Amino acid sequence: MELPLVVGVDGSDSSLAAVDWAVDEAARHGLPLRLLYGSLWERYEGSRPSLSADRPAEEVMVQHIIASCTERAGVRNPEVKASGEILPDDAVSVLLGAGHEAFALITGSRGRGEIAGRLLGSVSLAVAARAVCPVIVVRGSEQNVRGSFGRVVVGVGDSTDGEGAVRFAAREARVRGSALTAVRAWRAPTHEPGDHLLIADDASGAHEEQASNRLTDALRETEREHPEVEVLRRLVEGPTHRVLLEASADADLIVVGALRRHGHFGLQLGRAAHSLLHHSECPVAIVPQRV
Results as ranks from 00 to 15, higher is better:
39 S>Q: 02
40 L>G: 02
40 L>I: 13
40 L>N: 12
41 W>P: 00
43 R>Y: 15
44 Y>H: 13
45 E>I: 04
45 E>S: 15
45 E>F: 09
46 G>E: 10
46 G>Y: 09
46 G>R: 05
47 S>A: 13
49 P>M: 08
49 P>H: 14
50 S>N: 02
53 A>W: 13
54 D>W: 11
55 R>H: 08
58 E>C: 00
58 E>G: 02
61 M>G: 00
63 Q>W: 10
64 H>C: 04
64 H>S: 15
66 I>P: 00
66 I>R: 00
69 C>V: 11
71 E>F: 01
72 R>E: 10
72 R>V: 10
74 G>T: 08
74 G>I: 11
76 R>C: 03
77 N>Q: 11
78 P>L: 09
78 P>N: 11
78 P>Y: 12
79 E>C: 09
80 V>W: 03
80 V>H: 04
81 K>H: 14
81 K>V: 12
81 K>Y: 05
82 A>C: 11
84 G>C: 08
86 I>Q: 04
88 P>H: 14
88 P>N: 09
89 D>R: 06
92 V>E: 07
93 S>T: 15
93 S>Y: 01
93 S>R: 12
94 V>P: 00
94 V>Q: 00
97 G>N: 13
99 G>E: 07
100 H>R: 14
101 E>N: 11
102 A>D: 06
103 F>D: 08
103 F>N: 04
105 L>N: 05
106 I>K: 01
107 T>N: 05
107 T>S: 12
109 S>K: 04
109 S>W: 04
110 R>C: 10
110 R>Y: 02
110 R>L: 14
111 G>F: 04
112 R>V: 14
116 A>D: 14
116 A>L: 12
118 R>Q: 12
119 L>I: 12
119 L>N: 01
120 L>F: 07
121 G>V: 07
122 S>C: 09
123 V>E: 02
123 V>N: 03
124 S>L: 08
124 S>K: 03
126 A>Q: 13
128 A>Q: 04
128 A>N: 06
129 A>E: 13
131 A>S: 15
132 V>L: 11
133 C>T: 13
135 V>I: 09
135 V>C: 07
136 I>E: 03
138 V>R: 02
138 V>F: 10
143 Q>M: 12
144 N>V: 09
144 N>M: 10
145 V>D: 06
145 V>C: 07
146 R>C: 05
146 R>M: 09
151 R>K: 15
153 V>M: 06
153 V>H: 04
154 V>I: 07
155 G>C: 10
156 V>K: 02
